[in-house]
Amino acid sequence: MSAPKVVRWGILATGGIAQTFTTDLLVDPATRGVHHVKHTVVAAASSSSAPRAQQFLKDVGAPAEAKAYGSYEELVKDPNIDIIYVATPHSHHYQNAMLCLEAGKNVLCEKAFTVNAAQARALVDKAREKNLFLMEAVWTRYFPLSIYVREQIKSGRIGPLHRVLADNSMALNPEENFKDGKHRMVNPDLAGGALLDLGIYSLTWVFQTLYHTQPETARQKPKVVAALKSYGATKAADETSTVVLSFPRPEELGGEAHAVATTSLRVATAPGGNHDTASIRIQGPKGEIQVFPPAFRPSRTRIILADGTVEEKNWEFPGPGKGSGWYNGFGGQKNAEGEGHGMFWEADEAATAFLEGRKEGKYEGLEESVVIMEVMDEVRRQGGLQYPEKIETTKFPTQL
Score class of each variant (00 low, 15 high):
M1R: 01
S2K: 08
S2Q: 05
A3C: 00
P4Y: 03
K5Q: 14
W9S: 06
G10M: 02
L12D: 02
L12F: 07
T20H: 10
T23L: 07
L26A: 03
D28L: 06
D28S: 06
R32H: 01
R32N: 04
G33V: 09
V34P: 01
H36M: 09
A43M: 11
A44F: 09
S47M: 08
S48P: 00
S49L: 10
A50E: 13
P51I: 10
A53M: 12
F56N: 11
L57T: 12
L57W: 13
A68F: 05
G70S: 01
S71P: 00
Y72A: 06
I81T: 15
D82L: 03
H92F: 12
Y94L: 01
Q95L: 02
N96M: 12
L108C: 08
L108R: 05
E110Y: 07
V115T: 15
V115W: 04
N116E: 08
A118Y: 00
A120W: 10
R121G: 05
R121E: 15
R121T: 11
A122D: 12
L123G: 08
L123D: 03
D125M: 11
K126T: 15
M135A: 15
V138A: 13
F143D: 04
S146E: 08
S146C: 14
R150S: 14
R150L: 05
E151S: 15
I153M: 13
K154E: 15
G156I: 08
G156F: 09
H162C: 10
R163H: 12
D167R: 09
E175T: 02
E176T: 09
N177T: 05
D180E: 00
G181K: 01
K182F: 00
R184N: 02
V186D: 02
A191M: 01
A194E: 14
L198I: 10
L203I: 02
T204A: 12
V206S: 09
F207C: 03
Q208P: 01
T209Y: 01
Y211L: 03
Y211H: 11
H212D: 11
P215I: 06
T217M: 03
P222R: 07
K223I: 05
V225Q: 14
V225E: 14
A226S: 15
L228A: 03
L228D: 06
G232A: 15
A233M: 14
D238Q: 10
V243C: 15
L245V: 04
P250V: 05
A259G: 01
T263E: 13
S264W: 10
A268R: 05
P271E: 08
G273A: 12
G273F: 12
A278E: 13
K286L: 14
I289S: 03
A295F: 11
R297T: 14
I303Q: 03
G308M: 07
E311L: 03
K313A: 07
G319W: 00
P320D: 03
P320A: 00
P320M: 07
G329T: 11
E337Q: 10
G340M: 03
H341D: 14
F344V: 09
E356T: 07
G357V: 03
G361W: 09
K362N: 13
L366M: 14
V370N: 03
V371Q: 08
M376W: 02
E378H: 00
V379E: 04
V379W: 06
R380H: 09
R381M: 01
P388G: 01
K395V: 02
F396Q: 06
P397R: 11
T398M: 04
L400H: 11
